[in-house]
């Protein structure tokens, strides 16, 4: 006889509960299977195929795409692709860092507003989402145009020659990236800051902590859950972003997202594109793993 258990006032068996659980999960799992797991597997397979003369895929196993990504070609070794990958990591890292640095004061500011105006401030943070990213990028064109104060200021300081816009440039890319990803850090961070136990902050002050120590020992550990969500939500998409660097960075400021887009688009080299995708995925996973490891160390300290 099957062992009966009581579950929320219902007499049932473990097996029946399990079946019910799977039936609830099945739709989501099928969706992920068909639209995430299978395409990813295709991508893995594709990265080991090669390109025919007309851009078609030739299903013959080869490591050529990966050696090419590492920079080896018939003309010798160039670090171009590796450089693009490294720059993508750098841009994603700095974008995340700048967003975090901006988000802390912003979240504390919003959390300290009276209840009735707090939602207005939160709405202001979300407002940019209401506009398409491409339109926002073009708005930056306008703001960075030579006639506008930012470019004039840069000219006056001597950073750029007169009558030139501030784009395309690394500065414009960061401006666009941070403005795009800031809400992804601010919102989860705010939810942590709002629930902050201030008595811990006071206890740290009472126990002779400097401001820095109060932040690292009383505020950071408490806001870690929100911060982690924000970091992952920013870093992962920032690694693969291509609209902003394409529009604000110009052709010379290529990131891995642009490279992938180019392979699947203009170059019609799907198999190499898939290999770059794999490279991006591996890098993202390594970064997240490093972050997790680092996080545990912080906990242990």
């Amino acid at each position: 006889m099957k062992k009966l258990i009581i579950w929320h006032g219902e007499l049932t068996t473990r097996g029946s509960l399990q079946r019910r659980g799977y039936s609830f999960l099945s739709s989501g799992m099928l969706w992920l299977l068909f639209f995430l797991v299978l395409p990813s597997l295709v991508l893995v397979a594709l990265s080991f195929a090669s390109r025919g003369s007309y851009g078609e895929v030739i299903w013959k196993f080869t490591l050529e795409n990966y050696t090419r990504l590492m920079g080896f070609s018939v003309f010798g070794w160039t670090p171009d692709y590796l450089f693009i990958l490294a720059r993508s990591v750098e841009v994603a890292f700095l974008t995340t860092l700048i967003s975090v640095i901006f988000s802390y004061p912003l979240s504390f500011f919003i959390a300290s507003r009276p209840k009735n105006t707090r939602y207005l401030w939160l709405t202001l943070v979300i407002v940019p989402f209401w506009t398409n990213i491409v339109i926002r990028a073009y708005a930056w064109f306008l703001l960075l145009a030579p006639e506008f104060p930012l470019a004039k200021l840069a000219t006056a300081v001597g950073l750029i020659p007169p009558e030139t816009p501030l784009y395309p440039s690394a500065f414009a890319v960061y401006l666009g990236m941070v403005s795009m990803f800031l809400p992804f850090v601010t919102l989860p961070l705010y939810s942590s800051v709002e629930r902050l136990d201030w008595s811990l902050v006071e206890a740290a002050q009472d126990l002779y902590s400097s401001r820095t120590r109060v932040f690292f020992k009383a505020i950071l550990p408490q806001t870690m859950p929100g911060l982690s969500v924000g970091i992952v939500l920013t870093f992962v998409p920032a690694m693969g972003t291509f609209v902003i660097p394409d529009l604000l960075g110009g052709a010379k400021y290529m990131l891995v997202g642009n490279l992938i887009q180019q392979q699947f688009g203009a170059s019609r080299d799907w198999s190499f594109g898939a290999a770059v995708c794999m490279g991006l995925m591996v890098l993202t996973m390594i970064s997240l793993q490093l972050y997790r490891r680092r996080g545990e160390e912080i906990d242990l300290l």
Partner: peptide
């Protein structure tokens, strides 16, 4: 004098122990 410079210590109502 700010709290962190005072040679006075406090036992908080909820104890405020650092959970981590």
């Amino acid at each position: 004098l700010p709290a962190n410079k005072r040679h006075v210590n406090m036992v908080f109502q909820s104890y405020a122990l650092f959970p981590h």
